[in-house]
């Protein structure tokens, strides 16, 4: 989701020659720095300090405790399942929305924004009721022996719904900008559509696609609102890591909560770094072909 690379590329292309001709540097910089410190930095520092207090041995014991381990494993596997689905679905949607014409296309395009616009609690409520035994989907699936609510499938479903737009919206613009001449050349040389996609189109959209996949995975790991409705939250079975952290807080086990939160924070920051790297690469690629 980050547009850091974008912003910086735009900035360096337009060097400001006259330094500080404009007024307001002190004021805006002061406001920005104090706000960032109070609202963003200080709370994160509070977590890191709390984590440092625990000590490595206790920290390790908390993170590898069976219930924590099960929660982390569930969160990672469900997020991986959700991401695989979203990668395929997002690629399909991006392709169809850019390359195909069909009635109702604008509506389908607009629908892709629904998961971000809808509050996560609303999404969770709707999905859990839909897939419950008496819901529209559950009434069909449960007699077939497929249970979604209170299982890992439900967790993955909720994660997947709330991160649908990432892959679609990162791949779509790159696909739109793709010069058709390489595909035409490939077709002239007798390549099949599938070969063209695999050898020409896919390599071009790969950085954007991977960025979308990374963002989707990161969002799935952090998703809470939608998941708690559908998961049933059974310890050791369908309890996600962030919920376990909240439970530890409610038990006044601040060490336990901080340790789990720090693990999730570390994963999130690593994924942020990866997506920034990928985005920088994607931009370079775009610059080279444009």
């Amino acid at each position: 989701m980050s547009s850091l690379a974008n912003i910086d590329a735009g900035a360096s292309a337009r060097p400001v020659r006259h330094k500080r001709v404009l007024p307001g540097f002190g004021l805006t910089m002061g406001v920005t720095l104090s706000y960032v410190c109070v609202i963003v930095l200080l709370p994160v520092i509070a977590l890191v300090l709390k984590g440092a207090e625990i000590g490595p041995e206790r920290f390790w014991a908390i993170v590898t405790a069976p219930r924590t381990f099960a929660a982390l494993r569930l969160t990672l596997s469900a997020a991986a399942m959700a991401t695989v689905f979203n990668a395929l679905y997002g690629l399909l949607m991006a392709w169809v929305l850019v390359r195909c014409e069909f009635p109702g296309k604008r509506i389908v395009d607009a629908l892709m924004d629904i998961p971000f616009a809808l509050p996560t609690a609303v999404a969770g409520l709707a999905l859990s009721a839909l897939f419950a035994g008496n819901g529209w989907y559950g009434a069909i699936l449960e007699p077939m022996g497929i249970k979604v609510v209170y299982t890992i499938w439900g967790v993955a479903l909720a994660m997947s719904f709330t991160s649908i737009p990432f892959v679609v919206r990162t791949v779509q613009p790159v696909l739109e900008d793709l010069d058709p001449q390489y595909e035409q050349a490939a077709a002239t040389l007798g390549a099949s559509s599938f070969t063209i996609f695999r050898k020409v189109v896919f390599p071009a959209i790969l950085p954007a696609f991977m960025t979308g996949v990374t963002l989707s995975f990161a969002r799935s790991l952090g998703e809470f609102g939608a998941v708690v409705f559908i998961a049933g939250n059974l310890p050791m079975q369908t309890e996600i890591a962030s919920l376990l952290a909240v439970i530890r807080l409610e038990e006044y086990d601040y060490n336990g909560a901080s340790a789990i939160a720090l693990v999730l924070l570390a994963i999130a920051l690593v994924l942020l770094g990866v997506s920034n790297l990928l985005q920088a690469r994607a931009l370079r690629y775009k610059g080279a072909t444009a």
């Binding site: 989701m1 980050s2 963003v40 709370p43 977590l47 909240v246």
Partner: peptide, 25 residues
């Protein structure tokens, strides 16, 4: 660049972790 990254941190931190940070603070 560092300032930009800092400002964007809330987008990459799970809201639950944000809540825990505030509770600890």
């Amino acid at each position: 660049k560092a300032l930009l990254t800092l400002i964007e941190i809330p987008f990459s931190i799970s809201p639950i972790i944000a809540g825990i940070c505030y509770l600890l603070l």
